[in-house]
Computed example of a mutant assay.
Amino acid sequence: MTSKPFFIATVLTLVCASAVAAPEPEAELREVLSAHEQALDNHDVDALMGLYAPGEETVVMGTTPPERWVGKAQIADAYRHFFEDFDAGTLERDCPWMQIGISGDTGWITANCEYTDSLKGESRSFALNVTVVMQKLEGAWKLRTMHFSNPTAP
């Protein structure tokens, strides 16, 4: 017969072990955003498209109204053009302010980010506001909407 203290200790150990082993949902969202930045830095359109949810309701938006790409075909084409704007392997991101949230199968990240990269060997830096909405599909977080904009002076 098992003693009550032994049983309680065993249950607590199992609960704690599962809590340690399970990744935090917010960490999963950060991982998707990091995977996006890595694929972007590598100019890897296939890896980028693997991060996006399927369907024509998936959207990437930029700063101005014409900067809107809907569905994977348009989004992939947009990224191919983005690749022309910086040298592969030079993109670095730091987001000094970031807010993350999850409700059910929907997650979001809103951030102010500072980027550095180079174009034809010329270093540069710039800031972007980034908003990402993700949907959990078949156990994996997928990008549903990404919006980035360049902050402008008043």
Rank of each mutant, 00 (worst) to 15 (best):
M1F: 12
M1Q: 12
M1H: 10
T2H: 10
S3D: 11
S3Q: 09
K4N: 07
K4W: 10
K4V: 05
K4C: 00
K4Y: 04
P5L: 13
P5F: 12
F6A: 15
F6D: 15
I8F: 06
A9P: 02
V11R: 13
L12M: 15
T13D: 02
V20L: 14
A22N: 11
P23R: 03
E24R: 14
E26K: 15
L29R: 04
E31V: 13
V32N: 01
V32Y: 03
L33S: 11
L33Q: 08
S34N: 13
S34A: 14
A35M: 10
A35S: 15
H36K: 03
H36C: 01
E37C: 07
Q38M: 14
Q38D: 14
A39P: 03
A39V: 07
L40I: 10
L40T: 10
N42Q: 15
V45F: 02
D46Q: 15
A47L: 09
M49E: 01
L51K: 03
E56C: 02
E57Y: 00
M61R: 01
G62A: 07
G62K: 03
T63Q: 06
T64G: 03
T64V: 11
P65D: 13
P65A: 09
P66R: 05
P66Q: 09
E67Q: 13
V70G: 03
V70Q: 00
G71N: 08
K72S: 06
A73D: 12
A73R: 05
I75Q: 02
A76N: 09
D77G: 10
Y79P: 06
R80Q: 12
F82K: 07
E84D: 11
D85F: 09
A88N: 05
R93P: 00
D94W: 11
W97S: 05
W97M: 11
M98I: 11
Q99G: 10
I100H: 04
G101L: 07
G101V: 04
I102F: 04
S103F: 08
G104V: 12
D105C: 06
T106K: 06
I109G: 00
I109E: 00
A111D: 04
C113M: 08
C113L: 12
Y115A: 00
T116P: 00
T116G: 09
T116R: 04
D117C: 07
S118W: 11
K120R: 15
G121C: 05
E122L: 14
S125K: 08
A127V: 08
A127T: 10
A127W: 09
V130A: 02
V130I: 05
T131D: 04
V133H: 03
M134G: 02
W141T: 01
W141Y: 02
L143K: 01
R144C: 03
T145S: 00
M146I: 02
M146T: 05
H147N: 06
F148H: 04
F148S: 00
N150G: 01
N150Y: 08
N150E: 06
P151H: 10
P154F: 12
P154R: 08
